[in-house]
Amino acid sequence: MNRDYDRRLRLLLLPYAAGIGLLFVLPALMSFALAFFRYDSLSAPRFAGLVNFSLVRTDSLFNLSVVNTLALVLLPAPLRVFGAFLAALLARGGRLRHLLRAAVFLPSAIPATAFALAWLWILNPLYGPLNRLLASLSLATPGWLADAQWARPGLALAVLWLVGEGFLVCLAALYDVPRDLEDAAAVDGAGAWAILRHVLLPFLAPVILLLMARDAVLLLQESFTLTWLLTGGGPYYATYTLPQFIYEAAFDRLDFGMASAALWALYAVTGLILALVYTIARQWQIGMSEEEFLL
């Protein structure tokens, strides 16, 4: 009876398991393997040893794309998580909380392409709302996406609005903080800041750390949609990122081997982020027990 029940439960898990296998594990394994082949999908793959890796490593565009990716992903991620946390803190209770929840989630709810086009307009160097605002305040008006110096800050600014997922997670996590803990601190005379520092932050640290890692991964994708639509990687490669390198290698030049070799770098970057999070967790002795892992 019990075994049978469990077996049926596992049956319910089957689509998920099969999906992970077919849509994640298999493609991931394929890309790992394809890195050792020359493959254009038109003719059969030819084994090429480490050729793709040396091609990628010596490609100056590749190196540039890695640097740009780190700049576009690692800088906004902590800011976004911080923003999401702050917004969640304010949206936890009190008046206007529903309005705030709707507002914070809205930019993430609209299609990424619509969001990107909105920023194409906002960041228009001469007539866009942002520069009009800056001009009316007598501030300097950068060229944003048209300027090699300002294109990256412009994109980093835009992605700060996309905090929907982090916001939801923070909000859910905040609800999990036992109310009596906070109440006890308040009775002891702790101010809002002290409660935040000594009660909420320690409790939420694992979630925030995890979110930071997830956010960096998410940004990889979001930054591609933005750069692809807004700058095409320009001006003069200022916003040329690793996802674009991979996209162009695979879908423009049909060089799936080289794209896969570049993917190894992507996995390395992701691994690095995870390792960083893990190290910080160890350093600060933040509990990473399964119980706290569960959102």
Binding site: P27, A28, M30, L34, L242, I246, Y247, A250, E290
Partner: peptide
């Protein structure tokens, strides 16, 4: 349970970019 939760988190950490080209082939 623990195994599946861990697996789910790992999958969450896979960048979508990494799957484009091979999903295309699949």
């Amino acid at each position: 349970q623990r195994r599946w939760v861990l697996l789910s988190f790992l999958v969450l950490m896979v960048p979508g970019v990494a799957l484009w080209s091979s999903r295309f082939l699949v």
